[in-house]
Design a protein around this nucleic acid. Structure first.
Ligand SMILES: [Mn+2]
Ligand SMILES: [Mn+2]
Length: 313
DNA sequence: GGTATAG
DNA sequence: CTATACCAACGCAGC
DNA sequence: GCTGCG
């Protein structure tokens, strides 16, 4: 049943590679593992040095799911790097897995971690993320095309602000827009930045986008700009993560030119990702390389809000 | 999926 | 040795 | 303090 893979000088145990994980598509656990190993050179840079949350499906996508953050001592192989980070809610440390080499990736996938969720910040600067994210979640009754429309408007606002930003499919129903930043801003500041841009978008297309409707029912037919994900300890599905959905879609970077009605949420998946990467390579490279200051943009947005508020009185 | 404990 | 039990999330807005 | 939400 169990096999051992020799990776970077470590014996990594893997099991049940023949188990069907996607019954509708016939993809097996071994297919998932093969994908992550083949993609490791692309994926690892985006999880390197980051605390990781696993979304686990040990019985496949039709089985029970659970998040896994804390790795107990007695299930931590010597080659896994971990770091204890205090959690207020838990009133104790969480022993997070820290992104490192292929062996770490294989260890997590073997646990049934179909999705990987990296923190927005690295261990070197835990309180200072190196990206902010616009998490666009279409609510009940909203379409993927609605999501694309909201994304395009965010694209226009960020372009006017001269802030670099990069889109990817979530692989499920929405889109993610990453804003790479120098690790000098707090989570609160980055959240405010996303909130202010989201607020502007909602002013322009209030029937398509929402940001302050906390109740799901109130968001019906609209795209929720989930700025509240920009919080320490919160995560979203990472780039190149597979999703527990039919076709095994993958959260895949796209060009802004491709964010139009021909983009489909599941068009990049376990079946098609190879060709896609061959054709365009890693479109998210700038997210790691083009770290920017958003001080000016944040001030412009704050003043914009002030102006609008003043006009109302 | 892995580990501890009971039988 | 095999069967079974048990575990594997949290941050926070809003009420 | 608890529920809803992601
Ligand atoms: Mn989302
Ligand atoms: Mn969300």
């Amino acid at each position: 049943m169990d096999q051992f893979l020799q990776i970077n000088g470590n014996q990594v145990r893997v099991s049940n590679l023949e188990k069907i994980y996607w019954p509708g598509d016939g993809f097996r656990k071994g297919d998932l593992l093969k994908y992550y190993i083949e993609m490791s050179s692309l994926i690892l840079p985006y999880i390197q040095d980051r605390p990781l949350v696993m979304s686990r499906y040990p019985e496949g996508i039709t089985g029970e799911m659970f998040y896994h953050k804390h790795l107990a001592e007695n299930q931590t192989p010597p080659y896994i790097k971990t770091q204890r980070i205090y959690s207020k809610e838990r009133e104790d440390d969480i022993n997070y897995i820290i992104g490192s080499g292929i062996e770490t990736l294989v260890f997590m996938v073997n646990l049934g971690a179909i999705e990987l969720h990296p923190w927005f910040s690295r261990v070197q600067t835990l309180d200072h993320p190196d990206w902010a994210i616009f998490d666009l979640d279409p609510a009940e009754g909203a379409t993927f095309e609605d999501t694309i429309m909201v994304a395009q408007l965010i694209h226009k606002v960020l372009t006017d602000l001269k802030v670099k930003h990069y889109p990817k499919t979530s692989g499920a129903t929405g889109l993610h827009i990453y804003v790479p930043v120098e690790p000098i801003y707090s989570y609160e500041e980055l959240q405010e930045f996303v909130e202010l841009v989201g607020w502007i978008v909602v002013q322009v297309i209030p029937d398509k986008a929402t940001i302050y409707d906390r109740k799901v029912k109130d968001r019906a037919g609209k795209v929720y700009v989930d700025y509240l994900q920009n919080i320490k300890g919160k995560t979203i599905t990472g780039v190149y993560s597979v999703r527990p959905q039919p076709k095994a879609p993958i959260s895949t970077p796209v060009l802004w030119d491709e964010v139009n009605s021909s983009l489909k949420p599941d068009m990049y998946n376990l079946q098609t990702i190879g060709k896609r990467i061959e054709e365009v390579g890693d479109l998210f490279k700038p997210v790691l390389k083009e770290k920017q200051k958003i001080t000016r943009a944040l001030n412009l947005l704050r003043n914009e809000l002030l102006d609008v508020t003043r006009k109302q009185y």
